[in-house]
């Protein structure tokens, strides 16, 4: 399952559609699991009338979590050593998101092999909603 250094090269990519027509209920589900009950993510009345947004919008951490699924599908379970992101645009109910990892570098440190990736998630209009990086331990 794990990636092998000898089969990878810089520029290789892995891409997955992580959500299609994101439902509002998923925001409720994520609030309950994560403990972030900010009403801006689940309370349409508050989000529109008080906060001034067109609707509720997703937790940044939900998009990071879903992008993390693409990463662990690619690098294998328990292999990530680093994962970091910037939230560049809000994600709305109904959005379709695609997450992509691109191989930036392959390294060897103390006899262990690692991969460095850039990470990007875009919406149905191709606009980036999350940009980041990850590193993982790989096989030789």
């Amino acid at each position: 399952m794990a990636l092998s250094a000898h089969t990878l090269k810089v520029g290789d990519t892995h891409e997955e559609q992580i959500v299609n027509n994101r439902p509002r209920t998923q925001l409720v589900q994520y609030s309950g699991a994560s403990g972030d009950y900010n009403p801006i993510h689940t309370d349409e009345v508050f989000a529109t009338k008080v906060a001034g947004y067109p609707s509720v919008f997703a937790h940044g951490m939900l998009t990071m979590g879903m992008t993390g699924k693409m990463l662990t599908n690619y690098v294998g379970d328990g292999r990530l050593t680093k994962y970091g992101v910037r939230f560049t645009r809000q994600v709305w109910p109904g959005d379709v998101l695609t997450a992509k990892a691109t191989v930036e570098a392959l390294r060897e440190e103390g006899g262990k092999h690692f991969i460095d990736l850039t990470v990007s998630t875009v919406n149905q209009e191709g606009a980036e909603v999350l940009s980041g990086y990850a590193s993982a331990r790989i096989d030789p």
């Binding site: 906060a51 990071m64 680093k82």
Partner: peptide, 27 residues
């Protein structure tokens, strides 16, 4: 629409601690 009257404006967080801009994890 809200259970708390806020004294000042300010969007984004709607009084709830702002928006999340970045998150980084080292495992």
């Amino acid at each position: 629409p809200t259970g708390v009257q806020r004294s000042s404006g300010g969007g984004g967080g709607g009084g709830g601690g702002g928006l999340h801009a970045e998150q980084h994890f080292e495992y």
